[in-house]
Design a protein around this nucleic acid. Structure first.
Lengths: 215, 215
DNA sequence: GATTTCGTGGTACGAACGTACCATGATGAT
DNA sequence: ATCATCATGGTACGTTCGTACCACGAAATC
């Protein structure tokens, strides 16, 4: 046999090219030729490693979700050794906010895929719809743990609060994306809401400044 | 002069056709010919009333926002005569959730436009980006009024709470849209959050049942 | 050394899309 | 009655896109 190329690696490079060009020009404006040019390969090669555009897009979504999952996990780990529930949740949600180019791209493409999935059965069946469910499970569990150690505000349903928290975070992310809100004001809204969910009394590794508190 | 047709009315009909077909097949899959067929006119007529596709899409967005604004306003009015702040806010947010076909379409298309606006300067300059700002102003003002009449939970910043509330509502809407959450569970999350913002003690014209309260 | 198979390139084809062009009733002003 | 003008239809053009087809070099197996 000839050259023996690692298909997985090559597919990853092409998928990354897809994500880059889609983040730059929008997913709707991305064609096979654009991806090929961005990856520095010929159109034929993109066809070779992904038979069809649909499969390329599907793999791109996988790739995107995986990369972003790693990012969030890294940010949570960076929150310090054995952080409290509050710090963990805060790191999780803050890492998901579109503040830099990478997270902006993720938010944009994820939303694009979500919109497409409404009328595309193949996309709708993709696990990216289970990803938020997993996140909700994690946050819910963290809140439950905080509740048991009595670090939660009184009478809160961890499951409902987790759902609300994630929805708010996603909504704030979209607001940032379209330029309606600055990352700072979004973070402020989120922090205040966390203050109310948790007692807002414990330090808990978290450090948000009380200065500069206006609109 | 000949026939004299009301351009505004005709443009409205075509825009409605655009919204219908876009809601059915997705905004990305809509072409001039589809809109023409849906409106029951020739392709040439769509060109005649909207010179270009871009202008058609722009007008479609206007049309969409206007229609939905009216819908929300109607729902708020239907909340009863001189409703309290809680009932008003609740009616507002609940009316925005994608529970029926009309609101589903609105959410879907609004999100589609938002995604497009990230890389389209003309769309980004459109007033639909100011619409959420207006909503935030309204909710913020309602919360402020509730705060002054002491019907708000202690120590809440109306502006921040309004922002968080709308972001959560939007996020929940997206969750419903992609099928991750049922309208009922989303409403439950929203209601609980409202319970915590308001004292959860006043009847305030609102009636949410305390039965059937599980997942 | 011959051959089979993998990786790669170039290119062509058919479809769809937005837009432009040309034509033609119908109607109100002159 | 004539004519300019509005509304409308049909259609053709150029482009772009996804996909299919054909060709060739290189390397590992026999």
């Amino acid at each position: 046999m000839p050259k023996r190329v690692d298909h997985g690696e090559r597919r990853g490079e092409i998928a990354e090219a897809l994500v880059r060009v889609a983040g730059r020009r929008g997913l709707h404006a991305v064609g096979m030729r654009d991806v090929a040019a961005e990856a520095g390969v010929s159109l034929r090669l993109v066809q070779y490693y992904f038979e069809t555009k649909e499969k390329l897009l599907l793999f791109g979504l996988e790739y995107l979700a995986e990369r972003f999952g790693e990012r969030v996990a890294a940010r949570v780990r960076a929150a310090g050794p054995s952080p409290g529930p509050r710090a963990t949740v805060e790191a999780l949600l803050m890492a998901a906010l579109p503040v830099d180019e990478e997270s902006r791209t993720f938010h944009l493409l994820y939303t694009s895929y979500a919109v497409l999935s409404v009328h595309d059965r193949t996309l709708a069946a993709q696990p990216f719809i289970r990803n938020p469910d997993a996140a909700e499970e994690v946050v819910s569990e963290l809140l439950r743990r905080a509740h048991e150690s009595d670090r939660l505000a009184s009478g809160l349903d961890p499951r409902l609060e987790a759902a609300g928290l994630l929805a708010m975070s996603a909504g704030l992310g979209t607001s940032i994306l379209v330029g309606q809100r600055t990352p700072e004001s979004a973070a402020e809204v989120l922090t205040h809401h966390l203050d109310r969910i948790f007692g807002a009394r414990d330090g808990d590794t978290c450090a948000h400044d009380t200065s500069a508190h206006d609109a």
